[in-house]
Amino acid sequence: MTKTIFITGASRGFGKIWAEAFLNRGDQVIATARDISHLKDLVGNYGEKIFPLKLDVNDRDAVFAAVKAGKEHFGAIDVLINNAGYGLFGAIEETTEQEARDQMETNFFGLLWVTQAVLPIMREQNSGHIIQLSSVLGVVTVPTLGLYNASKFAVEGLTESLAQEVAELGIKVSMVEPNAFSTDWGGASAIHTNANPVYDKVKADLQAGFTPDFFGKPEATTQAILKLVDSEKPPLRLFLGSKAYPWVKQVYQTRYAEWDAWSEVSNEAHGH
């Protein structure tokens, strides 16, 4: 059955790869990007199956207008993939106010605006699937990506609540949590703070952990996304890549041990 997919940040990386995968199998795609010239090849190959829209997700009014235009163009929005976002690299002390606000504005508030715009359409349809691009860094953390971590932790909290709110409305909700992949997320799409040499060692230690097999192949994610979209009972959370789950499992074992060790203090604090 043909689906209509609304994808933000579709000009490169996961967004473009997934958009092409949907188009290739016959779905219709509403593809948004700040620069839609990067979508010319998809338009040339798939014609009327793709509806490109220029969009900055930080502009809430523009988001609502784009969602309305996409709905009017294809008649429905079956799946939303909130993919737009970027990485801010740098220690927390190095981060300026504007850099911090910009990171949250795009990764969290932009995602929120698109979600809010799509919800009335999906409620009216009594169907739909909202897929938020989170990250393994929305579950565990690394140093020098603190603001990015914070933005994805915020996406996780928002989305888990959303899933509970719309469970009886015919709307499915999922989060995709990739480990590191060889996209330009860490390259052309990234923003870097002005470096303070105090943090050179922690940055070097992080880089030293990037073994040759650390980064997954972005093209290998397409079957997982197609399966997620086609699932009758999709998971709330789906890791992408082989590194994410073992890492998270290890971190949570450490967390449980610490919580257990301090449980007596926690219980005393209840006051009964």
Rank of each mutant, 00 (worst) to 15 (best):
H192T: 15
S231T: 05
A208F: 10
E258L: 13
Q207P: 01
Q223D: 15
S182A: 15
A195Y: 06
T193E: 04
P246Y: 08
T211A: 11
T211C: 04
K249E: 03
A257E: 13
T221E: 00
V198I: 13
P234N: 05
A224M: 03
A190L: 11
E268Q: 14
F210I: 15
D230L: 08
Y245N: 02
P212C: 12
T211N: 06
Q250F: 10
H192K: 15
N194Y: 08
L236W: 07
V202G: 05
V229G: 00
Q250Y: 09
N267A: 12
S263Y: 02
S189K: 01
K233N: 15
R255W: 11
F181Q: 00
W247H: 07
K227D: 15
L228E: 00
P235C: 14
V265M: 12
T211R: 09
K217H: 06
R255E: 08
T183W: 03
S189Y: 01
D260Y: 12
V198T: 15
K201I: 05
V202T: 14
G187E: 09
R255V: 14
A195I: 11
T222F: 02
D213P: 09
L240W: 01
Q223P: 02
I191D: 04
K243G: 11
V198D: 11
A220M: 07
Y245L: 13
W185E: 00
G209E: 07
R237K: 10
P246E: 11
T254G: 09
S242E: 14
A190Y: 06
L226Y: 09
F239C: 01
A180Q: 13
Q207H: 07
G209D: 05
I191L: 11
R255T: 12
A261P: 02
A224C: 05
Y256D: 02
N267W: 03
K227I: 03
K233W: 02
V248M: 08
A261N: 10
P235Q: 13
D184H: 14
D205T: 06
T211V: 10
P246G: 08
L228G: 05
G216R: 01
S266P: 09
S266I: 14
K243T: 12
K201A: 13
Q223I: 04
Y256S: 06
K249S: 12
K233H: 15
G187L: 11
G241F: 02
Q253M: 12
E264R: 12
S189E: 10
K249Y: 00
K227A: 09
Q253C: 07
G241C: 04
Y199E: 10
I191K: 14
A224F: 03
N267E: 09
V202N: 08
A261T: 08
G241D: 01
Y199M: 06
E268I: 04
N196K: 05
S231N: 14
T183R: 00
L236D: 03
